[in-house]
């Protein structure tokens, strides 16, 4: 039996009284890579946000279990400390806070202890080199004036340092050029191999999936998971689109 990391059961979610997710079930085991595909507005990002605890959404019924703990009503910071992560589709800008000092605080929260500046800098440098990020980014204000690609790389950088047990990647490949896709994929691969973490990849396209072994593919339409399959489902959708499921 493989160890269950995340279990979403019969989840119903709404925002501003609008019902978005209907009876969603998903189980992710340790080390597995799940892909969530679907047309625009299907509710994919909503599911990602609800899993990591965005308070803008309300869970009307069902539950989310992370590890052995039910976390349906637990705040986002506690989920993060216990090992959840989401790469944001549009990470907000935080002026006056450098990427480096922010990330160090986050790492300390995650590990529950102070991290020596020297050790942290070494880790940061290694991860930035992997992603071919210029060192100067560490001193820049968090996401302020970052290009689309830089923002996504910064998200993957955070994932590499935080070493979550489950990472949700929300449209991490959208709007990226070929080079950025390559680097982001490299970062994701590193995470899977070094941290043994589980992934839930929300995407429209298949570009970042080319270098990653996908275990399961879920298709979401109108807030419901309409089909679950293996890696081949990605190729199928790539060729035929979602028309068969709508």
């Amino acid at each position: 039996m493989s160890e269950t990391v995340l279990s979403v059961e019969k989840l119903n979610v709404s925002i501003n009284e609008k019902h978005i997710l209907h009876d969603v079930d998903i189980t992710v085991n340790r080390g597995e890579v799940h892909v969530l595909m679907g047309p625009n507005g299907a509710g994919k990002s909503t599911l990602g946000n609800v899993i990591v605890g965005n308070p803008a959404y309300s869970v009307d019924s069902g539950k989310i279990v992370f590890g052995n703990e039910e976390i349906t009503n637990i705040s986002a910071d506690k989920r993060a400390r216990s090992g959840m992560f989401m790469s944001f589709q549009n990470p907000p800008e935080i002026g006056g806070v450098s990427l480096s000092s922010f990330l160090r605080t986050a790492v300390e929260q995650r590990r529950g202890q102070k991290v020596k500046l020297w050790d942290f800098k070494k880790e940061l440098k290694a991860a930035m080199e992997l992603l071919e990020m210029d060192e100067s980014y560490a001193q820049r204000d968090l996401n302020v004036g970052f290009s689309g690609g830089e923002k996504k790389k910064s998200e993957i950088l955070q994932m590499l340092l935080l070493k979550p047990t489950l990472a949700v990647l929300d449209e991490t490949d959208s709007g990226l050029d070929v080079d950025a896709v390559r680097l982001v994929s490299k970062g994701i691969k590193e995470y899977v191999e070094k941290c043994g973490g589980s992934l839930l990849i929300i995407t429209h396209s298949t570009r970042i999936l080319e270098s990653i072994n996908v275990d399961y593919t879920h298709v979401m339409v109108n807030g419901r998971i309409v089909k679950t399959g293996g890696a081949s489902l990605v190729t199928e959708i790539n060729e035929n689109g979602f028309a068969d499921y709508e």
């Binding site: 990591v52 986002a76 907000p92 002026g95 806070v97 605080t105 986050a106 929260q109």
Partner: peptide, 27 residues
Amino acid sequence: DDQVFYLMSRGMSEEDARATIVSGFAE
């Protein structure tokens, strides 16, 4: 709310998240 949620999703408490944003504003 997006900023607060973003920082919280990295492990900061809501209070710390707000204080961080304000300190950054004052930087």
